[in-house]
């Protein structure tokens, strides 16, 4: 009995180790929740895997954590949208070949009756200011994601003091945060892609959009292979080349047209 169990455990251990040999054909992509939740990667990845035979392991986290993974060499390639943090990441030599991929924009969502009067504001800073002045609930991602970074960069323009009386941090992804804000009839900042995928499920409407400050650019960054020897540099380069290629741009531009009536990501030239 004992011998049998030992043999079984031993066999399973061998299986564990041997089945993880084919590593060069795998890359770890650390990216934001918006590219995953919107379904964009579900369209792009099969094409990439078909073309190159490289399997992509997508880890959908906030941009902040995605870059932290890159900093530690735990990811091979990043697809993120937090420009200031990206520049810092590049400045520290953590990444190479940062390239523009696509953009869309952020929108301020709130209850249809707009109790704070954010619709009347002339800038996004003004809209934030009216929320603070009215003390209506605002749900922040609070997770160091690209959206969170964008939100924090806007508050100084509002010139208001954030108070936990009305300022909540969900600590969750964009989708979950939208649902919380919807249930609380609160304001929240969202990327347009996630908002459009949730439009039918929530009652919140766009109360402010169009400010230049709300631009939301996505970049692809290859993790610097000189810093971490485990990084699959060739696989990462193949993915970056793929996602910035002309054929992929067409796929990105076409994504969402059927479902939402318009593109939700707009490809960029580098």
């Amino acid at each position: 009995m004992k011998v049998k169990v030992f043999r079984l455990v031993f066999l399973l251990l061998i299986l564990l180790v041997t089945s993880s040999v084919a590593v060069d054909k795998t890359i770890i992509l650390a990216t934001t929740t918006s590219t995953v939740d919107s379904g964009l990667l579900d369209i792009l990845l099969p094409v990439f895997e078909e073309q190159t035979g490289i399997k992509v392991k997508t880890i959908g986290v906030g941009s902040g954590l995605a870059m932290e993974m890159g900093r530690r060499g735990e990811a091979d390639i990043l697809l993120v949208h937090s420009p200031k943090d990206e520049e810092k990441f590049m400045g520290e030599g953590n990444g190479i070949n940062r390239r523009a991929v696509m953009h869309n924009d952020f929108v301020l969502l709130g209850p249809a009756d707009d109790p704070a009067g954010a619709k009347r504001a002339k800038s996004i800073g003004g809209a934030f200011k009216s929320i603070a002045a009215a003390g209506t609930v605002f749900v922040s991602r609070g997770d160091k994601s690209g959206t969170h970074a964008k939100e924090l960069s806007i508050w100084p323009y509002a010139g208001s003091i954030i108070s936990n009386q009305w300022y909540l941090e969900s600590g969750q992804g964009m989708g979950a945060t939208l649902l919380i804000a919807d249930q609380k009839k609160a304001y929240t900042l969202a990327d347009r892609a996630t908002y459009l995928s949730f439009r039918d499920k929530i009652k919140l409407v766009i109360v402010y959009e169009g400010d230049k400050k709300l631009l939301n650019p996505y970049h692809v960054i290859e993790v610097n292979p000189d810093k971490h020897k485990g990084v699959n540099a060739a696989g990462a380069k193949a993915f970056a080349d793929f996602i910035t290629s002309d054929t992929t741009k067409k796929l990105i531009a076409g994504f969402g047209k059927e479902k939402f009536g318009s593109s939700i990501f707009f490809p960029d030239d580098d």
């Binding site: 180790v17 993880s20 530690r72 060499g73 971490h228 485990g230």
Partner: peptide, 11 residues
């Protein structure tokens, strides 16, 4: 994790 003690296993 790759940087962890058992990272070489690539699990």
């Amino acid at each position: 994790w790759r940087g962890g003690p058992l990272g070489f296993l690539r699990l």
